[in-house]
Amino acid sequence: MATSQVASDGLNPKGALVGGLGFAALALILVAVSIWFVSLIHGDYGEALESRDPIFLEKTGYTLFYFAPLVFTGLLIFGLACMAVGIRGKPYPKAISDRLNRTVGSLVLVGLLGMFAGSWVANKMWAEVFRSHGYNECPGSFTITSKWFSTVWVDQPDLCHDENVLTMFREGEQVSTINRFVLEQHP
């Protein structure tokens, strides 16, 4: 006779507990990473604005992480619910299960919508902040940097067309190196 932890109703408590632990741990890691990305964005932009760098890159894709913790919180609740089922050894009553599904589903849906709509709003907000500090957006940032979801901002519009600067970007130079070159050429 094989030993199995599967209950008579097909529930595997050990599997639910381990799966729930995995989902909860993954969710906590993802929440921490998304909060770190948001703080990284704010720190990088604040530092560039404070130091008055002639050129800096806006990483427009990072703003997706503004609402990502909502999605990951849904994943965390799902993981915790699975863990509870594993510990209890029996599923939740239908009313509680339905309420959990609605809560998790709502968090994920609002989080996903927020990630895309919020990213658009955040990128518009940051663009306004950069303009108010005297920066100009270079047209064709992808052709300048060969990077998706990056926008080049400059304090002098002619830098967008400066052949030396464009060559340095094409050669993969770091923005800090390009800034040093610009500052040496235009003190």
Rank of each mutant, 00 (worst) to 15 (best):
R88M: 05
K90Q: 11
K90D: 04
P91W: 03
P91Y: 01
P91Q: 12
Y92N: 01
Y92W: 10
P93S: 11
A95Y: 00
I96G: 00
L100D: 00
L100G: 00
R102W: 03
V104H: 02
G105I: 02
V108T: 05
V110L: 13
L112C: 12
G114T: 05
F116H: 02
F116C: 02
A117N: 03
G118L: 07
S119Y: 03
S119K: 14
A122I: 08
A122R: 06
N123C: 05
N123Y: 04
K124D: 07
A127M: 11
V129Y: 08
F130N: 13
S132N: 10
S132P: 02
S132M: 08
G134F: 09
N136K: 14
N136H: 13
N136Y: 15
E137R: 15
E137P: 15
C138I: 05
P139H: 07
F142K: 13
I144A: 02
I144F: 06
I144R: 13
T145A: 06
K147I: 06
W148E: 14
F149Q: 13
S150M: 09
V152F: 11
W153G: 10
W153S: 09
V154A: 08
P157L: 11
P157K: 11
D158P: 08
L159R: 15
H161Y: 13
H161I: 06
L166E: 03
M168G: 01
M168H: 05
E171T: 04
E171C: 03
G172N: 02
E173N: 12
Q174E: 06
Q174N: 05
Q174Y: 09
V175K: 07
T177Q: 15
N179Q: 07
R180M: 11
F181T: 11
V182D: 01
V182E: 01
